[in-house]
Amino acid sequence: MQLFYTPDIEPAHPQYFLSEEESKHAVRVLRLEAGSEVQLIDGRGGFYTAVIHDAHPKRTILNITSVVNGFNQRNHYLHLAVAPTKNIERLEWFLEKATEIGIDEISLIISHRSERKEVKTDRLNKIITAAIKQSIKAYHPVLNEPVKLGQLLQQPFNGQKFIAHCEPRDKLNLRDELALQGRYLVLIGPEGDFTPAEIESALQSGFKPITLGESRLRTETAALEACFEINFLNRL
């Protein structure tokens, strides 16, 4: 299967022109020719089948033959708010794997103990795009620009809100608290964890404290664990 990401495609149009970058990849790298069948995803749930009409390396023309809307749409909405790691490659790894597993929105939060306070999202979005193509997902996760934790706590969210932290306080298990097929927002802190004051602010903002197991996890591992658990519980 040759899959292309085409966020500007219009379902009602019978033809689509691949971008110059994608055209070059299709013709020069994949050696596709007129008559070759390809698949397209628009990042909004649309999965398209098309046939190459003109294999031009700068503007390949496709004839759309079928459209499936809501392709493999999941039964829940997951928003993870995670502190960027000092080593950006670890954040990139998390975004790739979380996208493959299933996630809808990611917020990068800056907290008191954050070791990285600036992030360029262009490259991160490219990693997410590559991951949806690799895992054949028609929905492109939203990656929000970095925001301070206090600002995120003030944003409205219609769903369950959780915070994972390492403080020795009573915590809940996701399997006991999760309302299935719902909407979820989970906070994951930096390597040094949230401060006690930040935890208290989150609790006062309606977040419930959760445990992700007995091990002390790195930021990106904790975020991926939360992503996996929520997806797994909603598949049962």
Rank of each mutant, 00 (worst) to 15 (best):
M1T: 03
T6L: 09
P11S: 15
A12V: 01
H13T: 02
F17N: 10
L18C: 12
L18I: 02
E22V: 01
S23R: 08
S23V: 06
S23F: 05
H25D: 06
A26E: 03
L30T: 03
R31M: 06
L32F: 02
E33H: 03
S36F: 00
S36P: 08
S36K: 09
E37Y: 07
D42V: 07
G43I: 12
R44G: 05
R44Q: 09
Y48H: 09
T49H: 15
A50L: 06
H53E: 14
R59H: 14
G70C: 11
F71E: 07
F71V: 03
N72L: 13
Q73D: 08
H76K: 10
Y77H: 12
Y77V: 10
L78P: 08
A83V: 15
L91H: 04
L95C: 07
K97V: 15
A98H: 11
I101R: 06
I109R: 12
H112T: 15
E115K: 09
D122F: 06
L124N: 01
N125V: 05
I128H: 01
K133V: 04
Q134S: 10
Q134N: 08
Y139R: 06
Y139K: 01
Y139P: 08
V142C: 02
L149Y: 14
Q151I: 01
Q154L: 01
Q155P: 00
Q160A: 11
Q160R: 09
K161H: 04
A164V: 14
P168D: 12
P168N: 14
D170G: 11
D170K: 12
K171H: 08
D176N: 15
E177W: 02
E177F: 05
G182P: 02
G182N: 07
Y184W: 09
L187W: 03
F194E: 00
T195N: 07
P196D: 03
A197T: 05
A197Q: 11
A202G: 08
G206M: 14
F207S: 06
K208M: 10
K208Y: 04
P209G: 09
P209Y: 00
T211H: 02
G213N: 03
S215T: 03
L217E: 04
T221I: 10
L224G: 01
E225W: 01
E225A: 15
A226D: 08
A226V: 14
F228N: 10
F228C: 10
E229G: 05
N231Y: 14
